[in-house]
């Protein structure tokens, strides 16, 4: 492969493009552990004071650990439920002769096309009526229902690639329909489950508008709302603190990516070859 073209022009070109972005990340990180005198670009002292939010609660804000916990609960509960419901619903839509199957398929597409913002007021009113306003479970429910159309659609697509004959063979070997699903079909859509799981978790982790509107209270605040409140607070404006919380906020995402990188790159379609 390398013989076909010279590498260095590519490398130079890509470096010029990505250089500024990398520089920004480096600055972001450096700024969280240093102080820079006003008017200068070069930091002059090392400090951990911008990370003090980890040990002490900033007045008027929830503890960072509570917010982290809330974010984690929000993202992981969403992920688990989206996974369970999508893999069951996707299977039904792909395989079973449900009444109104095509209607379901069509409406899933339409639902997915709705921007969240257009639904916000209606959802707000409904949650308030149900008494779920300002609660984690309320906003989780909303997030799940908005994620599901995408999840179901993806899962259905992957199930469609698993051959029918595998299921027939399973039945013939004595498995119940449920065993066929869990033991034979699900393992063949594992890449889809991995991918959907990671995407749902990241979507939950970075969700901002829903918790902001539907669960703004300190007790149920998530990191994105916490972060937004920091920058919106004109009285105690602290750029370095904001950056530190920002780094803290993206750290789990980066770890997740490093950890699952290969899996994400390898989303091949399941099913059998040859």
């Amino acid at each position: 492969m390398s013989g076909n073209y010279r590498k260095w022009p590519m490398i130079v070109f890509l470096s010029i493009l990505t250089g500024p972005i990398i520089l920004m990340y480096i600055y972001l990180f450096v700024d969280t552990v240093t102080n820079t005198p006003p008017g200068s670009m070069v930091p002059n002292e090392f400090t951990l004071e911008h990370w003090r939010f980890l040990t002490e609660t900033i007045p008027g804000r929830p503890s960072i650990w509570l917010a982290t916990w809330n974010t984690f609960v929000f993202a992981s509960v969403t992920t688990v439920i989206v996974l369970v419901v999508s893999s069951a619903a996707g299977y039904s839509l792909s395989r079973l002769q449900l009444p109104a199957r095509s209607f379901f398929l069509g409406s899933i597409m339409v639902l997915h096309a709705f921007p969240t913002v257009t639904l916000l007021i209606a959802i707000f009113l409904i949650l308030q009526m149900l008494g779920l306003y300002n609660s984690l479970s309320g906003v989780i429910l909303v997030k799940i229902s908005l994620e599901l159309p995408f999840g179901i659609w993806i899962m259905k697509g992957f199930y469609d690639t698993v051959s029918w004959e595998i299921e027939m063979a399973g039945i013939q070997d004595g498995a119940t329909r449920f065993q066929v699903w869990t033991k034979l079909v699900l393992p063949n859509v594992k890449p889809a489950i991995m991918a959907l799981g990671i995407f749902s978790f990241l979507a939950g982790w970075s969700e901002f508008i829903l918790p902001l509107v539907l669960a703004p209270d300190n007790k149920v605040q998530v990191l994105s709302v916490y972060l937004a409140a920091l920058i919106a607070d004109d009285n105690n404006f602290d750029m370095a603190l904001f950056k530190s919380v920002g780094v803290f906020y993206v750290l789990p995402v980066i770890i997740l990516f490093i950890f699952f990188q290969n899996k994400l790159m390898n989303i091949y379609s399941g099913g059998n070859k040859g």
Binding site: A169, P187, N188, K190, N272
Partner: peptide
């Protein structure tokens, strides 16, 4: 039901379980 018939089937595509 097929589960109770005790029939062995070889499918055209072999239908082995890939995993």
């Amino acid at each position: 039901t097929s589960q109770e018939r005790n029939v062995g089937v070889v499918f055209q595509s072999f239908a082995l379980y890939p995993h």
